[in-house]
Design a protein around this nucleic acid. Structure first.
Lengths: 244, 244
DNA sequence: TGTACATCAGTGAACGCGCGTTCACTGATGTAC
DNA sequence: TGTACATCAGTGAACGCGCGTTCACTGATGTAC
């Protein structure tokens, strides 16, 4: 009967999501959610620790929606990591515009350090996208650096759009910022002579990262890399120096 | 005695600002503000229409602080409009990091269309900065376009910083985004051959805008421009086409 | 200058509300023998 | 298969609190004659 319990939780989250989308985060009170879900307050408290717990799960629910959309849309495209960066940007912005209240809950930066843990999954997706670009020798800067810059810019573009009256929203600003920021992070082509050294160093670095974090499950860290941990660390430091 | 009334209001806003900075926007309740200011609730209601009015004035207070800082800092630098763009970015980000709760109130995008009216002044400052760059022939895109892109990116960089734990904040992401975005909007030099046409067209466009909006107070619109309004409008449309 | 009146900032007290949360209890489901 | 017991999701009702806001009133200040 754990099945039914989970289904009931899910249903409550669906109801809470509806309240959130229709009335913003203010509309999501424990009493309103319980009433809308047709259960009593103590029943809600049996499902979620407290209001913070409910909101955390609601944010996670939003990230699930977001990631499902994004994975599906990106799965449709051929395997072009740079094109995926552009598509990823647009998908992010589009999600924010279609679900502004969710977006504020997920990315609205309530308090410092108060970021919902589910955000890590979305972050990981961007890291993976950029990791693939690095694998293909298309990245001009380390993955982590590119992640930070793109994340900040995407968030800014989306929040700016959300802040505008729906009638006067204009996607060209987002597109311009997208093109500028992504261009600042990739190289035009893997074989372009000048920065070849840098992008190849970063491609190797990304491959090392992949090998270190996704090796055989049973093995310890670094099992897929035939170097000692300290050697690998030093190598990666050199690679980053070569890159920039 | 209107003097004393304004001083009292000012004092209440100072107290509210302290509550905001120390406890975030949740700490700013009408009761808490009244108590901290040493006045009774109805006295507060005599000064401000209601809570929304208080918050609006508090946001305006924040913009005053911000603009005073920014004007002072920019007044110290020599007259280099492009350097001012870089300094303006850093001043914005720095203000946000030093006053996160104010920043959220001012730029946190509560609801669509719910932007505080005082934000227009800060917006106008950025427009003026970019207008000067255009005057100097250093802008590659129309002022309004540059404003939107820079605003979105700055906000994103600042909110990303605010969302991080203070100990792990790293300004290099902001700096990188700043350099990328500003570079995408300016030309390296006014005399650089290739894009000279574009930047000169935009310089003229900016000068027309200035003449149209800051002409002799008594005169009607367009008093400083010896063309009919329709002619000016068409001219500016052509200039924008030349620019891009 | 002195009195009568109007204005209005500020007081003490209370309004009603929605909130998050918890209490004691019920009734259904599952488990042990 | 039948009885006794344990578990636990859910109920009805209430807790206390802080909130935004307003009431009737006071006392000081300003104004008119």
């Amino acid at each position: 009967m754990n099945e039914g319990r989970r289904a009931a939780r899910r249903q409550v989250l669906r109801v809470a999501a509806k309240l959130l989308e229709e009335g913003g985060s203010e509309a999501v009170s424990t009493r309103a959610v319980a009433a809308a879900a047709g259960i009593t307050a103590p029943a809600l408290y049996r499902m979620f620790d407290d209001k913070d717990g409910l909101l955390a799960e609601l944010a996670a629910y939003g990230f699930e929606m977001y990631l499902a959309e994004k994975r599906e849309a990106l799965a449709l495209t051929p395997d072009d990591p740079v094109a995926d960066l552009y598509r990823g940007w647009d998908l992010h912005v589009d999600f924010g515009v279609r679900h502004p209240a969710f977006y504020m809950l997920m990315y609205g930066t309530a308090r410092p350090g108060r970021r919902p843990p589910a955000a890590d999954e979305a972050h990981a997706l961007l890291v993976r996208l950029l990791g693939r670009a690095a694998d293909a020798g298309r990245l001009r800067v380390p993955v982590e650096q590119a992640t930070r810059v793109i994340h900040a810019a995407t968030t800014g573009a989306t929040l700016a759009l959300i802040g505008e009256e729906p009638s006067e929203r204009d996607l060209t600003t987002s597109a311009r910022l997208r093109d500028t920021v992504i261009a600042s992070v990739i190289t035009d082509s893997p074989a372009s002579s000048g920065s070849d050294l840098a992008s190849r160093a970063l491609a190797l670095d990304a491959a090392l990262h992949t090998a270190l974090t996704t090796g055989p499950p049973a093995a310890g860290a670094g099992a897929g890399v035939p170097l000692r941990d300290t050697e690998t660390a030093l190598l990666r430091e050199w690679l980053r120096q070569l890159a920039g």
